Every structure is written in structure tokens, then in C-alpha cells.
Deep mutational scan, measured.
Amino acid sequence: MATGGRRGAAAAPLLVAVAALLLGAAGHLYPGEVCPGMDIRNNLTRLHELENCSVIEGHLQILLMFKTRPEDFRDLSFPKLIMITDYLLLFRVYGLESLKDLFPNLTVIRGSRLFFNYALVIFEMVHLKELGLYNLMNITRGSVRIEKNNELCYLATIDWSRILDSVEDNYIVLNKDDNEECGDICPGTAKGKTNCPATVINGQFVERCWTHSHCQKVCPTICKSHGCTAEGLCCHSECLGNCSQPDDPTKCVACRNFYLDGRCVETCPPPYYHFQDWRCVNFSFCQDLHHKCKNSRRQGCHQYVIHNNKCIPECPSGYTMNSSNLLCTPCLGPCPKVCHLLEGEKTIDSVTSAQELRGCTVINGSLIINIRGGNNLAAELEANLGLIEEISGYLKIRRSYALVSLSFFRKLRLIRGETLEIGNYSFYALDNQNLRQLWDWSKHNLTITQGKLFFHYNPKLCLSEIHKMEEVSGTKGRQERNDIALKTNGDQASCENELLKFSYIRTSFDKI
């Protein structure tokens, strides 16, 4: 039985969820670079991206490699990797027998973001014989899940209580170790020597080791999670996991709180800001991140802002960003909400898709409305799209047979046209069989910064309504002859009103 693990408890099935942008060198404390989270699957090609990484700022997932063999891993080693800020997950990587050479110096898994409450997941690794993470000293947050690894031993010899604050939620089941077939031998045991430290858990006094050649490092209890030197002297209180010299914040392997210019500090002093819960960055760093993602459509890219001495992905609820200094300031009234469309555009074809934009005031991208039916549609669209004030790209209304009016965009005031449909149009209306009105132009103002209007096959939309939009939106004169079809717009509506004058002759039985 794995020490510190839980057996036999019912657990939810383990679901495996399925960018080499360097964020800056980590400095003297770390020998390499800070790398983003990685999802490495199918083959070993991307694994080489770990070569210079000291910190993975995010998670590391290595999974679904069915053609790899043990010899493929023999020359692979990433000794610079010290810390993973989120979680480490391995799933069905064939041929991998140990992690001792792959990650010989991995010391800390912070667990800032977890995989279903777990910071370390080893699942269905069919050839893994031992973990071998002999320098792993601290899992700051989260638990361990090690399950269905039929060859995995050296679990009962690990004292997880020396690595985690609590072992109650560890789930370590259905491994070879369960069948008591392992016969784990710690260093020196074969020669009758006791080389590794022994600890007591559940009444068992057991030597602690990761492999037959690597003991588990056990520091004096007084050192807590700070770690200790090879001689057993406690590291500085700002260290986490390990250090090369005692009581020196510049000799830590990793930091308990924050890293700044080669030393570990309790908090980031001005003019620095907390970033990702582990390091200090200056304003320029946060500003660069903001600008890199301002026009990016890459998933996970955030326009970072500053709030409460932190550089964070977005302002919290009730705050909006001051564009001059990136500071989050309290909103006066309802907060603006910028919604970034991942692929640059979004099609609204149902109430469900409209709900995804609920509360958005600025759309960074283009909207395509293609709704053919739905219950209580006008009210639903207004509830979900009615706060949109600005669209950076274009607005396209296409084959939306259920629409009679666009009044559900009740606050839309600006279409920038930074991206144009077919390279020309910022407003595009095609084949809307029941569209009769755009907006009530006596109450609604709309500016279209650039781009043209396109109207074709809107049989109940009168040309007068379209011409009014040209005047109000500032697009009059931009359109070419064929942009607004004269014969297919309003051709099934009563669009022309003329005053009919009647004269009559009164007659009676005795007068003409």
C-alpha cells in the first residue's frame, strides 16, 4: 500500500482533458527560462521544448504516446526543470519506465491550478516501474492521483506527508504495488545497510526511497516546507523545498512566496507586481503582455491589467481597466465587458449561442446573426445582446428569417469595421425574408467608422429604411451602385405612401 494514499474509496472516473512563447529569463536562482504550460502528445517531438525550461508557468501534460519505446527515452533528460506552477499529468506514455532521468531536479509542483483537485496525476502508464522524482520536495496545493499503472512499484516507500501538507485526498490505487509483488529495495538494503531515512506512518517504520538508488530526502521537522541542505541544516524561511546553503534567500532552489532578481522575498516591493503567484514583474512586463494579447485571437491570451499590486489576466467583477495605466478602477454604474472572439468572429444561430455573449459591452471581433427560429426570440436576444455598444469588426445579418427588427441591439452605437466582410463591408444584410426595420432612427444613433453597407434580398425592408441608415451611420456616399439592390429590397412591402385627393359631386333626387 502506498504510504499516505487512500484505498478502496469510491472515486469519480478520471477524465483526461485534452506555445513556446518565453516569458522571460528567471535569473540567477533558476538555471534556465520560464516556459508556458505545455500539452505534449502523440510523439516526442515537442518534448524537446523543455530543454531550457527551469519553470513551467502553467501545467505540463505528457500523454497518448503509443509508439514510443524505452530506448526512445534513454537520452532524454531535462535537468534544468525545477518547478511547475500548476500540475504534472502523465497518461498512456508507452515505453517510459521512470522519471528519474527525465526530470531529475523537479523540486516543486505548486498546484496553482489543479487537474480535478490533483497536482500530480500518473494514470495508465503501462510501462512505468517507478516514479523516480527523487528531488520532489513540495506539492504546495492539491493532491496526488496514481492509478492503474500495472508495473509501478516504489510507492509504499514514499512518505507523501513530507511532500504535501495533507495526504487525506491522495488516491493511489490499482498499481502493481497493490499486489505486494514489488519487493522494493532501498539503497544499501541488499548489503544489509540502512542508507535512507525511515519514518513512521500508520504504525509502520519504513525506509523512504524513490528507487533502488535514490533515497527520499527527509528534512528535520523544524525546517517545515522550506527544505534543508545535504547536511540537514534548514533553508531560509522564504525558500521552498530545498537550498544549497542554509538561511540564505539567494540560495533557495525555489521560493515559498515570490522570486525577485535572484532572491526569494515575502512580497513584491514597489515598483514590482505579483505575477502568477510566484514571481515579481515590473510595469513594462505587464504592459507588454497586455499589448501582445490586445489584437491576438490565441486562446488563453489575456490583456493583463494591474489590481491590488498584482498583474492579473482581467479586472475583477465591479472594476474596469483604465487604459492609460492598466489599473483596475471601480465602475460607475454597470461595468464594461470586452469579449474577445477566439477566431475573430462568432455566429449567433440560437439563443444558446447568444447567451455566451451575455453582459458583453464591447465585441472584439465580428458578429454573424443567422437565426431561423426560436421561442420568445426578441426578448431572449435583447437579454443577451442588448448591452453590446461596440463591435470592432463587422455585423452580418444573414438568412435570419425569424427577425423582424434589429432593435434587440438596443445599445449598439459603434461598428468600427477594423475587419470587413469580403474585404469591403462593415454591415452586411443578406436574404432576411421578414426583416422590416433596422432601428427606430428617431431614437437610435449608430456610427460606422469604416467599410460599406450591403443589402440584398431583404424583400420587406424598404429602401427608405436603408437610406436612413446611410445618413445616420455616416456611410452615405461610400456605397457603390450594386451594394444596395434596388429590386430585391422592399419588393414585397408597401414602401411608397402617396396622399390621394378626392373630389365629389353631391346629387339628390331633384338636383344634379
Rank of each mutant, 00 (worst) to 15 (best):
K224M: 07
P220S: 04
A230H: 14
D247S: 09
P271Y: 07
V281P: 00
C235G: 00
C239L: 00
Q303I: 12
H290L: 05
Q216V: 06
E97M: 09
C255R: 00
L327K: 15
C228L: 02
Q299E: 05
C280M: 00
C315S: 00
R297F: 12
I146V: 08
R208F: 15
L99E: 00
R162D: 09
Q216A: 10
C264E: 00
N202H: 10
P104T: 01
P330R: 14
V173S: 14
G227A: 09
Y134F: 04
I109L: 05
I163H: 01
G142Y: 04
K191V: 15
I158R: 06
V55Q: 03
N175S: 10
G333D: 13
D169V: 09
H48A: 02
T68K: 10
K294N: 03
I82F: 12
C286Q: 01
S244Y: 04
D86G: 07
E180T: 09
R263F: 02
L64T: 05
I109S: 00
C328A: 01
R69F: 12
C252Q: 00
L29F: 08
P70T: 09
K148P: 01
V108F: 02
E71A: 14
E231G: 14
F258I: 01
L128A: 03
E231N: 08
E49T: 09
F123S: 12
I62G: 00
H28L: 13
C331V: 03
C239F: 00
I40L: 08
E181S: 11
P316M: 09
Y272P: 00
R279N: 08
T199H: 12
T211R: 04
E130Q: 11
P249K: 02
A198K: 05
V34Y: 04
V144G: 02
P197T: 04
K292C: 06
R279S: 13
D261A: 12
V55T: 07
C252I: 00
L120Q: 00
E151F: 07
N195G: 10
L240V: 07
S213L: 12
L128H: 00
D39S: 06
C243H: 00
N175K: 11
F116H: 14
Y30K: 00
C280E: 00
Y134G: 15
N105R: 05
C255E: 00
V206Y: 15
L136K: 00
V167R: 13
V253G: 04
Y134N: 15
L332W: 08
I62K: 00
N257A: 07
I84L: 03
Y273V: 03
R256K: 09
S54L: 05
H236S: 11
L131K: 00
G132F: 00
D169P: 13
N150A: 07
S296I: 09
P104M: 01
E238Q: 12
N295K: 15
T68L: 11
V55D: 01
Y87P: 03
S213V: 06
N179R: 06
Y87G: 01
K129I: 08
Y171I: 11
D248F: 02
C228W: 01
S54D: 03
L81C: 01
P269W: 07
N257P: 00
P249M: 03
W160L: 06
C331G: 03
V265I: 09
T229K: 06
T157N: 05
H214G: 04
F285C: 03
D288A: 09
F116I: 09
N309K: 09
P79H: 04
G241E: 02
D72S: 03
A190S: 10
I222T: 04
N42V: 04
S225D: 04
M137W: 11
G232M: 10
P269S: 03
G142D: 02
G58A: 01
P31G: 15
L260V: 13
I158F: 05
L63P: 00
V265L: 05
G58K: 00
S225N: 14
C235W: 01
P104C: 01
N150E: 10
M83Q: 08
T250S: 07
L240M: 05
H28I: 02
D169N: 15
A198P: 10
C223R: 01
N149Y: 00
R92L: 07
E33A: 04
P79G: 07
N322W: 06
C286S: 03
L174G: 08
R69V: 14
G333C: 13
N117A: 09
K176M: 09
S244N: 10
L114Q: 10
Q287R: 15
C53Y: 02
S284T: 06
A190F: 11
P270V: 07
G183N: 06
C335F: 03
H291C: 02
I56Y: 00
N309D: 09
A190M: 03
N170V: 09
V206F: 14
L99A: 06
E130H: 06
D169I: 08
L88P: 00
D39R: 04
K100H: 14
M38G: 15
I62C: 01
C255W: 00
C335Q: 04
T140I: 05
L44S: 10
R110G: 11
D277T: 05
N170P: 04
G32L: 14
T68G: 06
R298A: 06
L174A: 09
G188R: 06
Y118K: 02
G142A: 01
P271K: 08
S296N: 15
R110D: 00
L90F: 14
F275V: 07
N170D: 12
E130N: 12
A190H: 09
H274R: 03
